[in-house]
Amino acid sequence: MNNLIKQKDILGFGALAVIIIVLPLFVESKYYFIVLNVIGLNTIVVVGLNLLIGFAGQISLGHAAFYGLGSYFSGILTVNYGFPLWPAMVVGMMATGAVAYLIGYPSLKLRGHYLVMATLGFGIIINILMGELEQFTGGHDGLMGIPPLAIGGWVFDNDLKNFYLIWSFVFLCMVAARNLLNSRVGRALRAISGSEVAANSLGVNTADYKVKIFVLSAMFASISGSLYAHYITFISPSSYDFHYSIQVVTMVIVGGMGSLWGSLLGAGVLTCISEALHIAKQYHIIAYGVFLCLVLVFLPEGVLMGITNFLVKNKDKAANYKNGLT
């Protein structure tokens, strides 16, 4: 069985790699590249957040803040202090991880949903600081002129190059998440999401694992935030408000809590919906809300698993019918 899952994964990741390499050949307009890149950036955040929601069973309403910390660390360090690009990104990731630890450690030691409250408060505070600490962040007008990333002399200065950069990171993050889930840590996490008491009694330090997975998921968001800052080259507080936290949570749920490929699907579908509604921006909130409610009420396991289960059940029914069982 285990072998089978791994084979399926190799197939899946192989297909993903091929699609990433080939897709740009069919994309002509700059606009579609931007959409694809935003999907990639969201996917990184969603994969990380899904580790937390799907496996640790905890809610974060502050992932916009971690995403924002990545962006602002990269932006401020490179623009204001002339930091080299990649180290700034690593510093941002480490600092975001440390902050997440400070938030996560006290709240995850408690039974119940304290993390949702802590991350909610933290997210709003960070968003306010982005607007008010003008001398560092540029205030509400934002921070401009963030340099694009570069490897050696090769600068990621157009949408195509950024497509390959961002989607390489998506690929790496998904492989990392899959490896993590197939390791000892992953088994412990699955045990926790199955039954926390049982996991505890078998010697799994549940609180410890939850904190670690929360820190990791914040770091994923930070990486994505840094990539965003260097890609768009301009950041402002409005990109990192409470609404973004809810958007990524919606993507996790639509894709399916605890489903890695679902994360990709959720990020893809909802980013496209956002874009399609760009002209009618006022329907944006309703669309997300309706989507979130419908999936939660009817397909709490997510669209991907929900449809699969539905098909499998029908297939079973059909098979049973053939065998004269029903």
Partner: peptide, 9 residues
């Protein structure tokens, strides 16, 4: 999550 969705609607 459902109350968040309802709130958005």
């Amino acid at each position: 999550f459902l109350t968040i969705g309802l709130s958005e609607v």
